[in-house]
Amino acid sequence: MLSVCHLYPDLLNLYGDRGNVIAFLQRCRWRGIPVDLQEVNMGDNINFSQIDFLFLGGGSDREQNLMAADLGKHRDKLAQAIDDGLVVLSICGGYQLLGQYYRTLDGKEIPGLGILDHYTEAGEKRLIGNVAIEMELDGRKVKATGFENHGGKTILKDDVKPLGKVLSGYGNNGEDGYEGARYKNVFCSYLHGPLLPKNQELTDYLIKQALKRRGMEEKLTAIDDSVEQSANERMLKRLIKGA
C-alpha cells in the first residue's frame, strides 16, 4: 500500500495542481498498486513516517502565509523524512517555501523552511507562459511541458540540482536556463499544467522511487500513454522548432 499525502488541499487549490495527486493515484490504481490518499489541512497532525508520496502546491499570498505558518510547526519532522528519502513533489509556492528565504521587492527576507538550499527573490515582472524543459530520469533524457506563472526568481545553491534545463520559457529565474530543483527524492518545479498528468514518465519515476523506498517491486507494468504523449507533443511542437 502506498500512502499519498496532499498538503493543504483546501488552501492551496490554485492552478489545478491537485491534478498531480490525481495522476499519481490513477497510475497506481491502473496497475493494481494499492494506494490511499490523506488530505492534511491546517492544524492536522502529520505522521511523515507513514507517507510515501507528499504533494505540496502553491496558493495566493494570503493562503500561502497561512500554510507556511502551519507547516513551520512540522519543519523538523519533514526535514528528517526528506533525509530518509521521502518522495516529495513541490510546485511553485511550495517549491519556494522549501528553500532558505523569499526576498520581497523592498528587501525584506521571509524565511522559508530551509530544507533545500535555494532562495527566491521577487522579480519586477511575473514570469508567465508555456514552458518546455528537458530532464534526466534513470539516465534517460525526457522532455516535459507545462505552464509557469511566478513573480519570484529562484536561485539554486551547490547542493541542489535543477530538475531540468529550459528549452523554452523562463524556468527558475529566466537567466540561468534551469528549471526546478532536485534533492534526494524531492522534486520541485514551477510548472503547472499540471505537471504530472501529461509528463507521465516523471509520474512513473516518482511511483518507482516510492515503491523502492518501501522495498516493494518497482517494475511498473506498461500503460497506454497515447493521450499523454499527444498532449505533450502538441505543446513541444508549438514551443520548439523541429520537435
Binding site: 490525481i22 490513477q26 498528468p197 501529461k198 493521450v227 499527444s230 498532449a231 502538441r234
Partner: peptide, 21 residues
C-alpha cells in the same frame, strides 16, 4: 488544446474508448 481535455477525462476515470480527439 483538445488533447488536454481528453487527458483530463482519462484521469477522471472516463474510459478512453469513449474519448475521441
Amino acid at each position: 488544446r483538445a488533447e488536454e481535455i481528453a487527458l483530463r477525462l482519462k484521469y477522471a476515470g472516463v474510459p478512453t474508448t469513449k474519448i475521441n480527439i
